[in-house]
């Protein structure tokens, strides 16, 4: 009885949707820009876009609609290269934006120097998410290599976040073993053998760890870990910040060829600059990214305790080098994946 009424209700509902959905058509003549971004920024830009539209309305009188596209960073960069008409890109790595520059020069070579802080208005780092109460006693990177610890991370081949995880572990090992490269390689290889499943993206790995309950520790972005706690509740998981980690600087850029063709350079540039404003930085911090402005950072100091962070340029000589050595086909990651466990 109950289920039949539900079924009838749903059929009626479907009919209503069909009726309401059909007549509306796409509005034209409005100022719109498209922000092509990576996966974990969905919630951030949802709020930020609304705030920007208000500010822009006040300053210029124009109504602007910011459209969003999300996906894996490399896939998104590829889509822009293949013709997805992004006015701005807000991606995970400078490498992704460099790729857009290299293919068809959609973005000028000097993009990174056009905005403050290497064109990255917010930062993040790699932290651990463990089960509530930290039952396996995981505190630092070397705990991951302990026997029996199951580590969840996405696949560095497909996920930008996973590359940061991998490089952060490598950076820790170099510090611990006095820059002994062979020892670092063995250490990271040991952690890799503790990974039971390679998800393709950061969000998928979070779901594996939190929803499906697989693994003892999840390696992930600090913002992703804080978001998981916000969404799922802090009664199930908690954050562990290792002694040292890597500084992630997700970059943003205006796509020159697109904004020049569409005549949207002014609004696109203002959009990115608004990320650096106090209002923008506040939204950034609320959505779990570390703000650049000291004032806002101080306000959220409990949420973002200071950590010892190294940059990819310091330890690996930049993304191009790290990419070629570690993640190219047949690179160190592939070698480690094939290496059998030590006897």
């Amino acid at each position: 009885m109950k289920s039949s009424t539900t079924a009838i209700g749903q059929v009626a509902l479907l009919a209503c949707i069909l009726v309401t959905a059909l007549p509306t058509s796409i509005q034209a003549g409005e100022l719109t820009i498209l922000n092509v971004s990576y996966d974990p920024t969905r919630e951030l830009y949802q709020e930020f876009n609304t705030a920007f539209a208000e500010t822009w309305k006040q300053s210029s009188g124009q109504t602007v609609t910011v459209r969003q596209s999300h996906g894996g960073a490399a896939k998104q960069a590829r889509a822009v290269i293949d013709g997805l008409e992004a006015d701005v890109v807000t991606l995970a790595l400078a490498y992704d934006i460099d790729e857009i520059h290299r293919h068809g020069e959609l973005i000028a070579r000097d993009w990174q120097s056009r905005l403050p802080n290497n064109s990255s208005p917010y930062t993040s780092t790699i932290v651990f998410l463990v089960r509530k109460g930290n039952p396996r006693g995981i505190h630092d990177w070397d705990d991951l290599a302990r026997p029996g610890i199951s580590v969840i991370t996405p696949n560095p081949k497909t996920s930008g976040g996973a590359r940061w995880n991998y490089l952060a572990a490598w950076g820790f090992a170099l510090r611990t073993f006095d820059n002994d490269d062979a020892k670092a390689k063995a250490f990271v290889g040991e952690i890799i053998r503790h990974v039971p499943v390679w998800d393709s993206g950061a969000r998928g790995a979070t779901t594996t760890f939190v929803q499906r309950g697989i693994g003892d520790v999840l390696l992930t972005w600090e913002n992703e870990a804080l978001l998981a706690i916000e969404k799922i509740g802090n009664d199930r998981v908690e954050i562990i910040r290792p002694s040292v980690s890597i500084l992630a600087e997700p970059p943003v850029a205006v796509v020159d060829k697109v904004v020049d063709a569409r005549g949207t350079r002014e609004v696109a540039t203002a959009y990115l600059k608004f990320l650096y404003s106090n209002a923008g930085q506040e939204i950034v911090a609320r959505h779990h990214y570390r703000p650049r402005t000291t004032e806002i950072l101080a306000k959220y100091k409990n949420k973002f305790p200071p950590m010892r962070l190294f940059t990819i340029d310091e330890v690996f000589g930049g993304w191009d080098k790290a990419q070629a050595r570690h993640f190219a086909d047949g690179g160190v990651f592939d070698q480690l994946l094939r290496t059998p466990p030590a006897p």
Binding site: S69, H70, A79, L84, A228
Partner: peptide, 22 residues
Amino acid sequence: SGHIRGLTNTVPLHVEILYNEY
């Protein structure tokens, strides 16, 4: 698709997006 919200997302793609947003 390009996954532009409100523009090029079909129903199956929209389901995936919602799921990924918890």
